[in-house]
Structures are given as structure tokens and as C-alpha cells.
Design a protein around this nucleic acid. Structure first.
Lengths: 242, 242
DNA sequence: AGCGCTATAGACAACGCTGTCAGTAAGAGC
DNA sequence: GCTCTTACTGACAGCGTTGTCTATAGCGCT
């Protein structure tokens, strides 16, 4: 008479097996006489385990992208066996999904925080741009977005972050001037340019700097220059074309 | 007495085996009585074969990056067996190296051609930018650079392309104006910004446009706007800071 | 202490991928 | 035709990876 045979895991069961069963094929006999001197097992709570696994996966995600995530590596990073990872996430794809989602949420939170920025209300150009630069130009985040895009994961944002950012900027832009304001699209393009350039720098910054024959410290000067360019544009008249 | 047993390639032999020999382990017997109704073999010249293989690999490179290249897929694309691919390139890594190098050379050639551009001599801002945009914003090339960077392949350019481009632009910039010219670094930053933004657009363009709530045709307007912004900057006074 | 739950580990299966081997056949040159 | 070179192939080895199964051990509860 066999016991529970359920062994709860994933996740709280109640989902029929999705992968087709393999037949035993070979009797799979194995002699079993080992001195067994290592029953050293740590037992985490499920929450804890999931969190550690996600942390480890996150490192791999940043360094090698979603497709570079390996169950064995992650397991050994955390200090467990890879079936345990599967126990907590069901299958590799679900783990990848989870870690990507977590990273994306983290990025969005950081960005939204930057949008509010140090200034009390309504964005003030330069300061906000610097904040966003620090967040996005941080290699990790830009690289993540690049990985996702290259590997064909949609990763769109339903909140239309760029647009809302542009709207906020445009509001302050129109109130802070007395001559007729440039069209909204002009502000939107400024934001778009900032985003594209910052992203580009996050991924290819070093390569480009090198190709430009610039030493690393020039990066800061470039940032200053860029911010100056944008703010001057925001304060001056819009581009004729747009 | 056995025949040549050399079976030439790879490449023209004369390199000792690098992977360690495996012992036969199992006699590897195989019954061999098949009706064999398919001795349909195409025989290409070595050049031809290499070229077709590289072409097929190039497609995979663009769509899934260097690490996404699979010998079997490429072989079946070309219409041969995967050992034949190995026959011509020695091992997978060499094939990847070759196809990446070829793609990179192609990109550089295109870019250099754009630098000369339609104008006879000396770069003329707007036109050149448009040319480069067409070349670089073309998804394929930007994606390739992103793949290479993300996967940690150096891919630096010893020619310092960005710098030489900036030098050319700066020359025309200083001669085309009567007031004191802005420092060279200002021009360099303009080029750098252009490169970063264009690259960013090549990789994340669609995502960003979507996040900005812009329809696809807005891309062209953005390009126009960007070119206008840069040329206006190039013709006006430099940024105070730089 | 005993019991149930479940996080964990070991063994192994299936599969995909690269790479090796030995043999086959398509041309080229004679 | 014969011979030699070599592009090409099927079979298979070995490894890495994901996923399954069974057993075990840590912990809370009574």
C-alpha cells in the first residue's frame, strides 16, 4: 500500500501532466550500497527557494540572456539540484518567464520613480534626464531589453510609458514659456530620441566610444552635452519640420 | 593495401586533430541491406559549397544571432548533410567566425560607401545622415551588432570609423562658417549621438515607437526631425558645455 | 514520539547538437 | 576506360540539457 504519492509541488498541483509520459523502457536497475556520508540537506521554505532561484536566474539573464539560462547552473548557484528548480517552477520556460517578468517590473518601477524625479511635481528637463540616464544607461537594463527584443519576446508596455513621459514634459514645457508652444510631437520626438540614444549607449556604449576614439571619462562629458542639447531645444523654438 | 585514407579537407589538412580521439568503444555493427534507391548527390565546387553555406548561415545569424546557428539547419537549408558543412569549415565555431566576419565586412563596406555619399567630396550633413540611416537603421545590421555585443564578441573597429567620420564632418563644418568654429568634440558628439540613436532604433525601434504611441509612418517624420535637429545644431553655435 | 506534508536529491530517459569515421560517388585528367 | 581526388553521406559516439520518477529527510503539528 503506497503513501500519498502526490508530493505536492507544482504549483499546488491540480494541473494534469502536460508532457507526455515516457514508458519505462528499461527496468533501470541500480545497485545501491553506498556509505552515504552526506545527507546534508538544507530545507528552505517554498518562498525562500523561489526567491533564491529567481535571484540566481537573474544573474544569468543579465549576462547571457533568456536563452542562456541553464537549470543546472542556476541550481548549483543556489546550492540545490536541478530537479528542485523544476519542482518550484514546473519547467524551464516558466522559470524564464518569471525571471524576465520580475526584471521588467523592476525596470519599470525604477523608471517611473525617475519620472517623478527629485523635483516635487512636473518634470524638470535636465534633472529628469540625468535620472533616467542613470537607470537606463546602467548596462543591465538596456542589455535586458536588447536580449528580449532580439530573441523575439514582445515586451511591449501597455502603459505607453514614453508617451506619458512626453505628455508630462510637454505640459511643463508649454507652461514655462510665453511664446507659442511647439507641437506635442516635437516633445515626443525629444523623448524618443533620448530613449533610443540611452538604450544604444547601454548596449553599445563602450564599442562606440572606442570607435570614436574617446576614453571612458568622455562618457560623462557626452551625457552633459546631450542633456544640454535637449534642454536647449526644449526651451528654444521647435524644429521647423515637425 | 588501403587507398588515400586522407580525404583532404579541412582545410587542405596539415593540421593535426585538435579534438581528442574517442576509442571505438562498441563494435558498431550495422546490418546493411537497404534497397538504396536514392544515390542522388549534387556535387558543388568547394567554393560554391562554402558560399551557399555562408549564405544560409547568414540568415540564421540575422534571425537568431551567432549562438543560434545550428549545423543541421544550415545543412538542410543548403540541401546537404551536416557532416558536409563540417567538412568545409572544420567545426562550428569556425563557421560562425567566418559568417560573422563576412557580415561585418559587408556592413563596413556599406557604411564607408555612405560616408562618401551622393555628394562629390566632403560630407554634407543631411544627405549623409540619411544614407547612414538607411544602412544602419536597416534592422539586420543593427541587430547583428547587438548580438555581437551581447554575446561578448569584441567586434571593435581598428579604423575608428566614427572618429574619421567626425573628422570629415568637422572639416566641412569649419570651412562652411565664418564665426569661430565649435570644438571638434562637439562634432564628435553629434556623430556619436547619431550612431547611438540609429543603432537603438534598429534594435528597439518598433518597441519604442509603440511605447510612444506612434504609428509606423511616424518613423519617417522622426528621421526628418532628427536630421533637422542635428543639422541645425551643426550650423548654429556649439553647446556651451563642450 | 509519531505522522503528514513537501522540499530536496539521485538516477536515468529522451532528445538535440557537434563531431568522427568509413565508405560512396561525381568529376577531372589520363 | 581507369585512376585519383575530394565533396558528400549514413551511422554513431558523446556530451549537455530538460524533464520524470522514486526515495529521502527536514519540519510543523498533534
Amino acid at each position: 500500500m503506497h503513501r500519498s504519492l502526490d508530493r505536492r509541488p507544482w504549483y499546488r498541483k491540480a494541473r494534469l501532466r502536460t508532457t507526455k509520459r515516457r514508458e519505462p523502457s528499461k527496468p533501470a536497475k541500480g545497485a545501491r550500497q553506498k556509505p552515504k556520508p552526506k545527507p546534508k540537506r538544507v530545507r528552505r521554505s517554498a518562498e525562500e527557494a523561489r526567491a533564491s532561484i529567481l535571484d540566481a536566474a537573474d544573474k544569468r539573464l543579465a549576462s547571457s540572456g533568456p536563452s542562456g539560462i541553464r537549470l543546472q547552473e542556476i541550481a548549483s548557484d543556489v546550492g540545490m539540484s536541478h530537479p528542485t528548480v523544476l519542482h518550484h517552477f514546473g519547467n524551464r520556460e516558466a522559470l524564464v518567464e518569471a525571471v524576465v517578468q520580475r526584471a521588467l517590473d523592476g525596470l519599470q518601477k525604477k523608471l517611473l520613480a525617475s519620472f517623478r524625479g527629485p523635483s516635487p511635481k512636473g518634470a524638470d528637463g535636465a534633472a529628469m534626464f540625468r535620472q533616467i540616464m542613470d537607470t537606463l544607461a546602467d548596462r543591465g537594463h538596456a542589455r535586458l531589453m536588447a536580449w528580449l527584443s532580439l530573441e523575439g519576446r514582445p515586451a511591449d508596455d501597455p502603459d505607453k510609458m514614453l508617451r506619458s513621459l512626453a505628455e508630462a514634459m510637454h505640459a511643463t514645457r508649454t507652461t514655462q514659456r510665453r511664446d507659442p508652444a511647439p507641437p506635442f510631437e516635437d516633445t515626443l520626438f525629444v523623448v524618443l530620441l533620448g530613449a533610443l540614444a540611452l538604450f544604444g549607449e547601454g548596449v553599445l556604449g563602450d564599442t562606440m566610444l572606442d570607435s570614436a576614439g574617446l576614453p571612458a571619462p568622455a562618457r560623462d562629458r557626452f551625457h552633459d552635452w546631450f542633456v544640454a542639447l535637449l534642454t536647449r531645444h526644449l526651451e528654444g523654438p521647435g524644429i521647423a519640420g515637425a
